[in-house]
Write a protein that binds this DNA or RNA. Structure first.
Lengths: 251, 251
DNA sequence: ACTGTTTATCGTCAGGGAGACGACTATGAT
DNA sequence: ATCATAGTCGTCTCCCTGACGATAAACAGT
């Protein structure tokens, strides 16, 4: 079946964003309220059409900036900005009732932001805990502030994004993407604890991260912003892969 | 930027397949020769348009069957058939000189096949070693039977697929997808050795795979098809994740 | 100033897994 | 019979991890 540019089914291509951060010791995702049908009034992942001459990653970065004001930092070394990577593509013929839409979902990991919707457009946007959006993962009905599923297949996309984040911080230094440019070992540990939903031993965690070459580089400064004894400040080192990986406690 | 079904850029959506197998102790990929421009006469990954009412995975499974006669086995438990999973999506505006094409690449892992093009259509198709297609990965010019890059951005797609396979057999039982339904520990070890391009200690490998619960289940039979002492035959167990993972030797 | 609380950081110890190899077994080929 | 080829079982050591004690340095309250 060779390419035939004169006869192909018409598709719309969009990008959807799973924007994750850690707030109040909980993994949170950015959701926006839909202003028009279908799914009017329901919460959904931010996203939009890919433009005619726009790369997929560029479209994701543009939507991210439009919705949150966040800059994504390309892997060219610039530090400020959020981590952005392609997640997966969703193309069920029925996923949008109006037309055939293929959505290339992207995953964004960002440090905690002061303003939930800084730089966003007119639509209401907010952070919601992943647990509340995903119904706590135990099949129970959702509780609290979020009672209904997300629009379209965004529940599935969010779940895939959360799973990707949970597994990827095991073997990469990606957890630092949730931290400010300078952070303490304890702050990094709280990121792991929030994303995995478990408690980690502070002493073993400290040994592990400071003993992995290239993971953390000390900046020389200290901080007491978490209370207690002053803690050393670190920046993310050059290493992207963690070998051996950080082990996620079972059950 | 809410959905606007009345005004969206027109896209074509295709699926491309990275079909990998292990032949002669080497990782091989399926390539087909293009019969028409652009890139006429060049080798490319198999693939084609997604139909108007067709799911992405269904399109990948259909193309796979058209090109190789292989059935992909859905995760519904049926055993025969190749493993199929979504790989990534490629949408550079310039990746196809004729029009805007977004391609959802899929990764297929198959046991060694008797006929390279069984069930394929009229186009010529063949297996080529990943090394020859990717230029040995050391920046050297390609040698042997394959001297030119693949069409479009298929070099990049193939590289991503090979990387996915190499990393995924570390922490999953996916290497069994390269094996026939019944296989020996030594055959499984040769899969790892071919995919990773390293030599593994037979004794430690044997201890590792037979000691991981749920990875292998003995069928009771034995075989001498590899020569030497008869080896126990196994089937893939129910476990999909390997914990702890199989460690890839460094360097 | 003293005490309790909180967080950070260093140390110790036991158990498990992996790498390095030795040894033995069971086939087919010469 | 002998050799070559694979497969399988053991052993030993090292390193990493989990469990957990102990110390250090800040702040809050009295």
């Amino acid at each position: 079946m060779p390419y035939d540019p004169s006869a192909f089914p018409p598709f719309a291509v969009t990008v959807d964003l799973v924007v994750l951060t850690v707030r109040n010791h909980a993994l949170c995702a950015l959701v926006v309220r839909r202003g028009e049908p279908p799914f009017q009034g329901r919460w959904a992942l931010p996203g939009g059409f890919v433009r005619a001459e726009e790369d997929l990653e560029a479209a994701a970065a543009r939507e991210l900036k439009e919705e949150t004001g966040l800059r994504s930092h390309e892997p060219d070394g610039s530090d400020a900005g959020a981590h952005l990577e392609q997640l997966a593509t969703y193309g069920d013929p029925q996923r949008d009732p109006r037309m055939r839409v293929v959505s290339v979902a992207h995953l964004v990991l960002a440090p905690d932001l002061p303003a939930p919707t800084a730089g966003g457009d007119a639509r209401s946007a907010r952070w919601a805990t992943a647990d509340s959006l995903l119904g706590s993962g135990d099949g129970m009905a959702r509780e609290g502030d979020q009672a209904v599923p997300l629009a379209f297949d965004h529940d599935r996309i969010l779940l895939d994004g959360v799973e990707r984040a949970r597994s990827k911080i095991e073997y990469s230094s990606l957890a630092t993407a949730f931290c400010p440019p300078e952070f303490t070992v304890g702050e990094l540990r709280r990121v792991y604890e929030a994303v995995w939903g478990v408690a980690l031993d502070p002493r073993n965690f400290h040994r592990k991260v400071t003993g992995t070459p290239g993971f953390l580089v000390p900046t020389g400064g200290t901080t007491t912003r978490q209370g207690g004894r002053p803690a050393q400040l670190f920046r993310a080192g050059g290493a992207t892969l963690l070998n051996p990986p950080m082990l996620r406690p079972e059950v």
